[in-house]
Amino acid sequence: MTSPSTGPKPGPGPAGAPGRGRRPGLRPGAPAGLRTRWWVGWAFAAPALAAYAVFVLWPMVLTAQYSLYQWNGIGPSTWVGLDNYGRVFTDPELLDTILNAIRLIVFFSVIPVLLGLAIAATIRRIAASRLAVVARTVVFVPQVIPLVAAGITWSWLLSSDGLVNQLLSAIGLGGVTRAWLGDLSTALPAVGVIGAWVQLGLCTLLLLAGMSRIDPALYEAARLDGAGPLREFFSVTVPSLRQEIGVCVTVTVISALASFDIIYISTQGGPGNSTMVPGLEIFYQAFSDREIGVASALAVVLMALVLLCVLPVQRLTRERP
């Protein structure tokens, strides 16, 4: 629930949704909740549907349509079939953006989830203390501020004169200091660190909330079996948190694949295209290079890629009824 650029993220999402929360047996076999005329429900849903259809569904159709044409946004367009998709998958410049987005998953998703798990497990026992209550507020701040602001802040921290290098020099690592966002080999990880910073607090708190719902009896049973903290973690905590982990992964993976704000602000895709991601490339292709067709083909690929990554996660972590 974090990245303003991509807006709302689903929870357990599509597959888990239908029927969840419904109480079987309450109204067995009843097709409609209330005795109303058939069109009343549609009338209630219609305004939302209309807004959604005009500003989301229709543009989705248009994106797919644009992707089959060569068009500069001004003059007439030419039908090119699947050529634009061919370019997306063969032009290294475009293909690399997709690979970069996938690499970002490590930082936006894997690290915050793993680190969040470790931290949550460590602070689980003092989750009710006053310090923890304060911490709940503090670690949420990155979720609340615009990602643009996170980008600006960290661009400064990671610059050659920034705090990160200052700290490294202070602990005797002056040799590795560099302009982290300006170095071909470190720019992508550096952008990733910004994402990790944004996501870590949310993941930690989500997982902590999940842990507080785990039945203490499970832990006691494990201790009686002679399990140490480590085995306890893997045999009790992690399995019980399957759903929360699924949520964290879903939200953060989407924010990695659809990243735009942070990169637009901190590197503009450079140096040497090393941090170019699909979102930014779409923006450049569509509005600077006026290659509406290529931009749209990449957009379709991006939307498909998000679904492709999110659906398996849903499937794996869904709560079995």
Binding site: V61, L62, A64, Q65, Y66, L68, Y69, W71, G73, I74, G75, P76, S77, T78, W79, I292
Partner: peptide
């Protein structure tokens, strides 16, 4: 909708 949907974008209003 896509298949039926008319010609390419931006045809008419060329400046």
């Amino acid at each position: 909708t896509l298949a039926v949907g008319c010609g390419g974008p931006g045809g008419g209003g060329s400046r």
